[in-house]
Amino acid sequence: MNTRANKTALITGASSGIGQELAKLFAKDGYNLVLVARSTDKLNEIGGQFWDEYGVETVVITKDLSEENAAQDVYNQVKEKNIPVDILVNDAGVGLYGLFATETDWEREKSLIHLNVLTTTLMTKLFLKDMVERNEGKILNLASLVAITPMPLMAVYAATKAYIYNFTQSLINELKDTNVSVTALLPNATDTDFFNKAGASNTKVTENLDDPSLVAKDAYNALMKGAPKVVPGGLVNKAYEVMSYVAPQETMAGMMRKNMEPKKEPVTDEKGNKAALTWGIGLAAVVLAGAALALAYSNSSAYDKARYRYKAGKLKSGADDVYDDVKDTLINGLNSVKDAVSTAKEVVAKAKETFADVLA
């Protein structure tokens, strides 16, 4: 049953990956669709599938959004068809891998900036104005977890995502007295064609990729709730977010550089690798708990400070236990796992410093 027969969602980058998965969720919920991408055949195929399965109408707009005035042209076509866009999803984006100074091509970087920044900004401006006039609407902007951390070897891409995240959070404040919401999507590395197109398919980060359908589901739910941001993927990715806030930027840059380096050898111990990620959650939780405890301690009474000292002592002991468990679990000696242990040691050391300050 088409429960959203009078509603329309426009999705860029809809021919594959997260964009296609989001389009499917909108169609399943009864939204008619405007799908924008470069592949006409693929969009028509998707549109036909959604009509057969969900009975929703699809308008296809074939457009290379990295071109000059692409956003304005998409908007004009939508207005000519008299289609009110209730939800805008700015999903289209590209990356480029390599050392900025010596390896990457400026023309490709310029195209990347145009697509990720200029087109997204103008698409938002054009459709947001209509939404504000109606006092109704939602926008989802694709940022990334690298929007809040450095990313050597994909420096320009990360910078564009930092722009999108900051831009989105500013709009949220500007729109707080309206019924229009904007949500930033901050996924981790996801199993799409992104890394292949960016020339980064042989990097370490591609060994652990999130499922685009699960990313889309979390994004869709957050968008519908009007959340300011969403970090899909559960506790592991939430831990990465926490670390990006509490760890020094040079430390985060070093971690990201290791992730973006070429694979040295195939990972044969998948269980051990997953264990490293699981313990990473615990390490980030220790850091977060320590930071929260230190803040609470500084604003507490003498009685409460005594209680916080006791809790801090337990957390410090827990940090030691977590690190010891990491070493025992990851004893197989794989290079990727050794990197995880090294990172874990750095995080726990910073946690211990926090707890030492609290206990002093």
Rank of each mutant, 00 (worst) to 15 (best):
P266R: 03
A351R: 05
G55D: 04
T120W: 01
Q49K: 13
K350A: 07
L334D: 12
E241G: 03
L185P: 08
L235A: 12
E67C: 00
N202G: 10
A70H: 01
A14F: 13
A216D: 07
F355S: 02
V78H: 03
G313Q: 11
G233K: 06
Y308E: 03
K42G: 11
F100H: 02
L128F: 02
T343E: 05
L99H: 08
N82A: 12
K258G: 09
A312Q: 01
N2H: 06
T183K: 00
A284T: 11
P150F: 01
L330S: 05
G254E: 08
S16M: 13
T183Q: 01
K352N: 15
A147L: 10
S16F: 11
D328S: 14
W279E: 10
E107C: 01
D193A: 12
I148G: 04
N69T: 08
S66D: 00
D218A: 05
A349Y: 01
L115F: 05
K24P: 04
L142Q: 11
V242I: 15
N237M: 13
L35H: 00
R257D: 10
F355I: 15
N335W: 05
A275H: 02
T121G: 03
V246I: 14
A291T: 07
L214R: 04
K314G: 05
M1Q: 02
N179C: 02
K264V: 06
D130K: 03
R4T: 08
M260Y: 13
S144Y: 10
K345I: 07
A71M: 03
V146N: 06
T343Q: 02
P212T: 05
M255W: 14
L43T: 13
V236N: 00
L288V: 12
I113V: 14
V59M: 11
M154C: 05
Q169G: 01
G17E: 06
T8Q: 04
S144E: 04
S317Q: 14
A306C: 02
V242A: 11
L35N: 05
V348P: 13
D218T: 06
L223N: 04
Y240H: 08
Y310G: 07
D357R: 13
G19R: 04
P232F: 06
D325Q: 15
K314H: 12
E174N: 10
T203Q: 07
V56H: 00
G254D: 09
V89C: 13
V215F: 07
N166D: 12
V230I: 15
T3G: 00
A344V: 10
G30W: 02
I11Q: 07
A253P: 12
K81M: 13
I61N: 00
L96H: 10
D91N: 15
A319E: 04
P212F: 05
A27Q: 04
